[in-house]
Design a protein around this nucleic acid. Sequence first.
DNA 1: TTTAATGGCGCG
DNA 2: AAAGCGCGCCATTAAA
Length: 331
Amino acid sequence: MKKTPSGAHSTDEDVLQELALDYPLPKLLLEHRSLSKLKSTYTDKLPKMINPNSGRIHTSYNQAVAITGRLASSDPNLQNIPIRTLEGRKIREAFIANEGSSILSADYSQIELRIMAHLSQDIRLLDAFKNNEDIHKSTAAEIFGCDLNSVSQEQRRYAKVINFGLIYGMSVFGLSKSLGIERSAASNYIETYFARYPGVKKYMEDAKLFAKDKGYVETFFGRRLWIPEINGSNGIRRAAAERAAINAPMQGTAADLIKLAMIAVDQWLSKNVHLKTKMIMQVHDELVFEVPQNEIEILQKELPRLMEGVAKLDIPLIVDIGVGLNWDAAH
DNA sequence: TTTAATGGCGCG
DNA sequence: AAAGCGCGCCATTAAA
């Protein structure tokens, strides 16, 4: 149903899911794939990487690999610990706090969509975030032309796929595939979306034009992200570069913000020498801490203030906090 | 035995 | 020919 770059028949998840409608084997294969992925990558490997001195797993953060300015975690990668499935979450449950401490997770809510609102200056998107609305719900209300409180689960799910797809420059083809709908229907959704959020459409066109003119795009702070293939002769790679030009300012600005947050939190912890709390991980829009019981209250109060205050955008930055005895419970 | 390429999939 | 951005790591296979 689909070919790999080398010309072989693809057996990826999409293909097997489609085949599973007609045959029993693909479903079994998918089950085996997901379980063996969890076993080989996490369950078998992570225990072997415990440092004998600390009794812990220590990752490395590379600051100069990701072109958008994100950190990248390796050996082991702790930025791709499972969370999306029940089975996977059992692995996350194994990340536990010391006796007497909790794991605290502080993550930016909808950070890239908020940045898109700021960069695009789209009035409806700015308003939605200023009113602290459920953004997928409010997008659903716009594209389905209904009331905020009459949005169905299904409508919200559609809007969510559209919202995330847009951040990445998704096409009609991609949207129709990921929603399993006709291309004409997908085309209608996108058209309606851009009619309701014209600022977003203009932002995307401007990002491409800017990149073509200068060879780079910029984050909110003016950091440059070079897109060399934006004027290349290979049409396919050029199209990919155009999508990167749309995405890079958002992902790059989010990367800038969380780095500033890490610095702000570190300085605050250093200043308050009595605190035993430790910042132990970063997962792109999330900071993870190990917090003694008697410090949870102060962290719950101070972290949002510190992280939300690193920059003044035209929308509020919102930080959600979760606390638990393990990393999964902290979400 | 090590390295590289491939296809696939975990996360934000 | 591809149609969704950014990563790192797994098993498998082939080459060095």
